[in-house]
Design a binder for these strands. Structure first.
Length: 229
DNA sequence: GCGACAG
DNA sequence: ATCTTGTCGC
C-alpha cells in the first residue's frame, strides 16, 4: 500500500555532505518539467513547516482543499525530530521528510500542491517545491515571501501586477503582487506546470489575503496560529 | 576575498 | 523559522 509520498530515501537523504546534496539537486533539477500537464483539478493541497521545542521538533502541516471552492476538506500535522540545521539552498533536505509524512496522512492524493518556499527559483533550480514535485511526480507550485536568488524590475502596486524574476538571463519565477499595497510574493513552478499557470493558480486561489488559501491554511496549522488567534 | 542567503 | 504588544494605516 504505497502512496506517491513513500519516497526512496536517497532522493532526499541528508548525511552532512553539502557538496553531495548540491550534486543531487543538479541531477533532480534536470527532471523538472515546466510544461502544463495535469488532469482536471479537483483537489489541491497546501503545505508548510514550523518548529517546536526550540527547533528540536519539525512540524509539517498539510491541508487538502476543494479546488473549486477552496473549502478545506482535511488538515493533518506530522511531527518529526529535526535532523539538520537550516542551510540556505538546502531547505528541502531539512523539511521534506516531515512534509511527505504529512501529505501521506491526507485522505486523498491532491492533483496539485502549493508549497511555502521556492520552486525553480533556486540557485540550482530545485527549491523545496521543485524537489517535492520531482520525487512525487505531482504538479507543485512554490510560493515564497522572500527572494533566494535573482533580480527583477519594480512591481506595480495593485493585486495581479507582476514582473519576471531573472537569474543568469533566464526567467526563474514571478514577483507577484497578490494584494494591493503589500509586499509581493515570489511564485515559481515546482513541477509539471508553466510560469504562467503557476501565477494564474495562485491568483485564483487567493481569498483576499496575501497568501493563497492552500498555503495560508497550512501556514496557520504549521505555526499553531490557528489555536492561538 | 566580500556579501547574500527560501524557512 | 522563532521569541512577542501595541500600534499605524487602509
Amino acid at each position: 500500500m504505497r502512496s506517491p509520498f513513500d519516497i526512496a530515501p536517497d532522493l532526499l537523504a541528508w548525511d552532512g555532505d553539502v557538496p553531495r546534496a548540491r550534486r543531487l539537486q543538479q541531477e533532480l533539477a534536470a527532471r523538472v518539467c515546466l510544461q502544463d500537464a495535469f488532469a482536471p483539478l479537483r483537489r489541491v493541497a497546501g503545505v508548510d513547516v514550523g518548529f517546536e521545542e526550540d527547533g528540536a521538533v519539525t512540524r509539517a502541516a498539510a491541508v487538502l482543499l476543494d479546488a473549486a471552492t477552496m473549502q478545506p476538506l482535511a488538515e493533518v500535522v506530522a511531527r518529526l525530530p529535526t535532523r539538520m540545521p537550516y542551510i540556505p539552498g538546502l531547505l528541502s533536505f531539512r523539511e521534506l521528510p516531515a512534509v511527505l509524512q504529512a501529505l501521506a496522512q491526507l485522505p486523498e492524493v491532491p492533483e496539485l500542491i502549493l508549497v511555502d518556499g521556492h520552486g525553480v527559483a533556486h540557485p540550482r533550480g530545485l527549491g523545496i517545491a521543485a524537489h517535492l514535485g520531482v520525487v512525487t511526480d505531482l504538479p507543485t507550485i512554490g510560493v515564497a515571501k522572500k527572494i533566494l536568488v535573482g533580480n527583477h524590475d519594480a512591481v506595480g502596486l495593485k493585486r495581479g501586477d507582476r514582473t519576471p524574476l531573472m537569474h543568469r538571463g533566464r526567467m526563474i519565477g514571478t514577483v507577484l503582487r497578490s494584494k494591493d499595497g503589500i509586499q509581493p510574493l515570489i511564485v515559481s513552478p515546482g513541477h509539471r506546470l508553466s510560469h504562467a499557470t503557476a501565477v494564474e493558480r495562485v491568483l485564483a486561489y487567493g481569498r483576499g489575503y496575501k497568501l493563497p488559501e492552500p498555503t495560508r491554511l497550512a501556514d496557520r496549522l504549521a505555526s499553531r496560529r490557528d489555536r492561538r488567534t
